[in-house]
Write a protein that binds this DNA or RNA. Sequence first.
DNA 1: TGATTCCCAATTGTTGACAATTAAGAATCA
DNA 2: TGATTCTTAATTGTCAACAATTGGGAATCA
Lengths: 232, 232
Amino acid sequence: MTMLGKVRPVERRSLETRATDALREAIIGRRYAPGDRLTETQLSELLGISRGTVRSALHKLLAEGLLAQRPYAAWEVVGLTRQDAWELFTLRSALEGLAAELVAEGLGDGRLAAAGIEAAFAALAAACDAGDGAAADEADFAFHKAVVAISGHGRLLTQYERVEAQLRMLIVVANEAPRATTRLVAEHRPLLEVLASGDGARAAAAFRAHARHAGEATLARMRVDAAARDRL
Amino acid sequence: MTMLGKVRPVERRSLETRATDALREAIIGRRYAPGDRLTETQLSELLGISRGTVRSALHKLLAEGLLAQRPYAAWEVVGLTRQDAWELFTLRSALEGLAAELVAEGLGDGRLAAAGIEAAFAALAAACDAGDGAAADEADFAFHKAVVAISGHGRLLTQYERVEAQLRMLIVVANEAPRATTRLVAEHRPLLEVLASGDGARAAAAFRAHARHAGEATLARMRVDAAARDRL
DNA sequence: TGATTCCCAATTGTTGACAATTAAGAATCA
DNA sequence: TGATTCTTAATTGTCAACAATTGGGAATCA
């Protein structure tokens, strides 16, 4: 008699880990807005765990750059300025450049790597064809992350995920308009090709340029939005 | 009557912050070796603070990549493999490339930036002239960090500091031989010049190449050391 | 009335006790 | 004897109480 499939593994992650994930998801999912204040007591009641455990989770999110701490006063969701946006886009550009270089040079299991990334690109194209802006944005994130993940560089992935989490907050702050989906595909297809070319330097340059371009577009939009607000 | 200078500000950092710094310094300073096990109770007695506060500090160092955690079993100082070394050097290359690009393009207060970096280079040259290998290594770290710090990119500096901390552990693991000090200066002078040239792309390429070169040298040394150990 | 001091509620910082888990050795059983 | 199951000491995970700090409003005073 085999037991395989009869039971599921129980949830082994610590309460702290689960609390961290729940809070991160809530912040990135905009259920808390930038500037919102989080109190340890309130969260401990909400999550049904002790204050100490909540506190530990908050510290983790502080390290991830999603929260700010004012000693003895408050935890609050970070509000991202244009300087922050600039930092995030330039940093993403550098990290993705490295990832692309590594993948192009075949350090990520060669053909297998290409297959995974091609799947991500296909998902992006499908979302664009369907005209689903939200799904396309999500597939956009997924495509870039897939490249980083397949690079086989653990620390790169960790740092990239940190940047990505903050970028997700930013994109909504900037109130991104649904982009022309055809352009989204057109901008990504060359990236796929340059990865397959095996030319690391060229791949790095292409990804850096792509990220910088996307960043400048969002920054411009933020400036327009800010100007509109000032005019109110 | 002025009170200026009569009293010093009291130490305002929390116990947790001070404990974190003390532990980080002890780990980077090799007072704990890679693989060493740290227990919360022992540290709380040593530091004279409660276990909860120690625990908080340990979590911070976990996020910084200096410690590893085995749930319910142990905290231990990370042991860096050659894969880790490769990750650290490639990551440093990407981060410094971005920093150099920003500095060269004058986003770091223009002339003032150059002044600060020139001072760091002068300190490096002085240490090399004096034939002080340890001081030269320290000045080497300081030079590169100065470039990052002056780039005006907060997140870049944070991530770079995380890489640097782990690199410091690695360098000692690799048991780095005192390099020819003249070569150290010769390798850095061009970096200084390319920063002053104002050509961001060229500066980025030069710093990336420099970091990659230094990384490959250390990796080669690690392979030699490992082979020597196997032969015992 | 204007500035200063005092007080208090809210919140985070710190602590020690208790619970859960691990790992290794002793005891048990085929 | 070999594998399996208990036992137990050590260690981390979680909790609730207490201390320290902050910010703002009330009370005080010139």
